[in-house]
């Protein structure tokens, strides 16, 4: 009993208000209300607010995040300080370059260092014209990580797919699976 309580406490401490992990089997899965994707492999999935997170090995090692429809005035992450005014805010009239800046600055405020973006370009998001760019960063301790961001604004809302992980092993491990998932987006 004591052990169960302790483990639950630990889980609460480590995950904040996220839902418990569930299994996503290979096949086609709905992501939010907008679209479905098809995956070749199984993922563990959890959701915090508008962000759905998939991982195979643990979200510190690699994570595939789906940001489902940020509205005008919303932030990507909740502010560490209570004052959300100080977090970068999504605006529906942003250019794609500004959306990239919004993502990069939001990520940089999460305790990552040397967050750099590269290769911003138009990219297909399902049947919509979206965008893509690549990320590189290091953890505060100095471990190198990398990421890829694909997104689109649909009906004035921002949808993002962010794949990130350690540069050594865990990001490359499922990169091809993620590319196929991104390529499989089908609007509902």
């Amino acid at each position: 009993m004591k052990r169960t309580t302790a483990v639950l406490t630990l889980v609460m401490l480590l995950t904040g208000c996220a839902t418990p992990y569930t299994l996503i089997e290979p096949g086609r899965t709905a992501v939010g209300d907008l679209y479905t994707v098809e995956s070749q492999i199984s993922w563990s999935s959890t959701r915090t607010g508008k962000i759905e997170l998939w991982t195979v090995d643990g979200n510190g090692l690699q994570a595939l995040r789906f940001v489902n429809g940020l509205a005008d005035g919303e932030t990507l992450f909740e502010g560490k300080r209570k004052d959300n005014k100080k977090m970068p805010t999504f605006r529906k009239n942003m250019t794609i370059s500004e959306i990239m800046e919004f993502v990069v600055d939001s990520v940089a405020l999460q305790g990552l260092e040397r967050v750099e973006s590269a290769g911003l370009r138009p990219y297909k998001f399902g049947n919509t014209q979206g965008f893509r760019f690549e990320l590189s960063y290091v953890s505060s301790k100095g471990l190198e990580g990398q990421g890829a961001v694909v997104g689109a604004v649909v009906r004035e809302r921002l949808y993002l797919i962010v794949y990130s992980g350690t540069r050594a092993y865990y990001y490359p491990k499922h990169r091809d699976h993620v590319e196929r998932i991104i390529g499989s987006i089908r609007m509902q």
């Binding site: 370059s97 290769g119 911003l120 370009r121 138009p122 760019f133």
Partner: peptide
Amino acid sequence: EDREMIEA
């Protein structure tokens, strides 16, 4: 590095 986007 964002030439493709600017061209778009």
